[in-house]
């Protein structure tokens, strides 16, 4: 069994631009089970602003958002 914040899947959207940033994250969330964690690597203001908000708006939990490398690392727990 995975740890509470061990990702079931990793999505790297550092080379993507809106709206593909959220599209890729959304597809990543569809590919994991409820309660599992998706790890997202992103770069720039747009995804930092929009991806956590979109995730929360669709019923997922943003567990962590922290600076990492040249961008940010985000952990999202998929909602039911």
């Amino acid at each position: 069994m995975r740890g509470v914040t061990e990702p079931a899947r990793v999505v790297d959207i550092r080379s993507q631009v809106c709206p593909m940033t959220w599209v890729r994250v959304k597809l990543g969330l569809e590919a994991i089970g409820a309660g599992e964690i998706l790890e997202v690597w992103m770069r720039g203001d747009e995804p930092l602003r929009n991806v956590p908000r979109s995730a929360a708006g669709e019923g997922h939990e943003v567990v962590l958002c922290e600076p990492a490398g040249d961008g940010h690392r985000l952990l999202i727990r998929k909602g039911a």
């Binding site: 709206p19 959304k26 669709e58």
Partner: peptide
């Protein structure tokens, strides 16, 4: 599974809550 070309083609459908990639 949707390939990259189709993800690009249907990106605005996938964004819709009622559709998504599965839809």
């Amino acid at each position: 599974m949707l390939d990259d070309l189709r993800i690009e083609r249907y990106a605005r459908h996938i964004l819709l809550r009622e559709v998504g990639g599965v839809g």
